[in-house]
Amino acid sequence: MKRVKVLVAKPGLDGHDRGAKVVAMALRDAGMEVIYTGLRQSADEVVKAALQEDVDIIGLSILSGAHMRICEKVLNLMKEKGIDEKPVFVGGIIPAEDALELKKMGILEVFGPGTPLKAIVDSIKGAVDK
């Protein structure tokens, strides 16, 4: 029996995990298996969790403003470890021009405040089905 596995991670130093938890619960309620890492993870730890858990997709919640640097690090490490086929989406306070840059970098989708949970669920389902 196959189930969609999602890693919801909080890389970086901001301590606000309400958004990540709300998204994690919504994915759980959509029938997915969600692995939540907890706060203040390094890029290393996030990639390691994704590798050991063999998730289908990775979500990063970043509210610290350090999204460019963190995403770059995570994507590079994923490549290094041989798991760069896994799609990555980002949620948080991300300026529109940065969101564009992130997508160019290889981030699948960027979800800002106010995104309906259903949009996130549908986007993940779409990405995993591919």
Partner: peptide
């Protein structure tokens, strides 16, 4: 009801998830 799950054990496993020696799976 939905088959979904929230797997939160890694949150508490700070040393094991950092260690290069230990394999942790939820």
């Amino acid at each position: 009801f939905t088959g979904g799950a929230f797997l939160g054990d890694r949150i508490r496993m700070k040393s094991s998830t950092k260690s290069e020696e230990i394999f942790v799976r939820s």
